[in-house]
Amino acid sequence: MNWFVNTLGTSIGKKLMMAFTGLCFCGFLVVHLAGNLTLYGGKDFFNGYVAHLHSYGPLINVAELILLTLAIIHVLTGTFLFFGNLSARPKRYAVNKSAGGRTIGSATMPYTGFLMLIFIIFHLFNFHFADHATQTVFDIVSNAFAAGGYVTIYIISMVIVAIHVSHGFWSAFQTLGANHPKYMPLIQGLGTAFSLIVGIGFGFIPIYVFTA
């Protein structure tokens, strides 16, 4: 297995891990968003979805463990890449000017990533580790989003997620070697659409609950 570690340990190998885990998270976001949209169906519909999800029992625990492992790989590898890139240019330029290649998303990947990490921990403590014995998940959500502060934090966080995936999505395909003259424009378009759907889809839920 030495060859496997050697391959993944290189710069391209680390990038492949970022791309693979990142795309898995994109898949997770789709499922998570689809589930959350049941909130628009009202209290019973949403609690019904939650009950249905929890009826999978151990499968859910396995999925959580997989997500946690992917998250640890994504965050640790991203941190290694970030510090590696800093040391690859010990003396910075006095004047910096883009030639037009980078975007807001690409230029801020490590920072949006770090902010997302903080948000994810905050989010888990808000909902996942909340008291589930005396209240339904719908109660937890509507209590949280009754506070304007929470709504603001969540909206800002969703903008950050959208910025991260606006670059991450197509970048992952490029890293996996899937750059094709026929499909690349489509992949880039999909990436933009996906980041908008994620940002708006998740971002409107707190507003909806707050105003409902």
């Binding site: 710069s11 391209i12 680390k14 990038k15 492949l16 890449l81 590696g84 890139n85 690859a88 240019r89 883009s98 030639a99 037009g100 290649g101 980078r102 690409s106 230029a107 990947m109 670059h167 197509w170 970048s171 490029q174 890293t175 996996l176 070697g177 899937a178 750059n179 003259p181 690349m184």
Partner: peptide, 27 residues
Amino acid sequence: FGNCTNERECEAECPKEISISNIARLN
């Protein structure tokens, strides 16, 4: 050398306008 994060600045600055599709091929 550092790690590529697909910023595309190289492609924009290269005097021979080498495309990053070559980076994808390397990957």
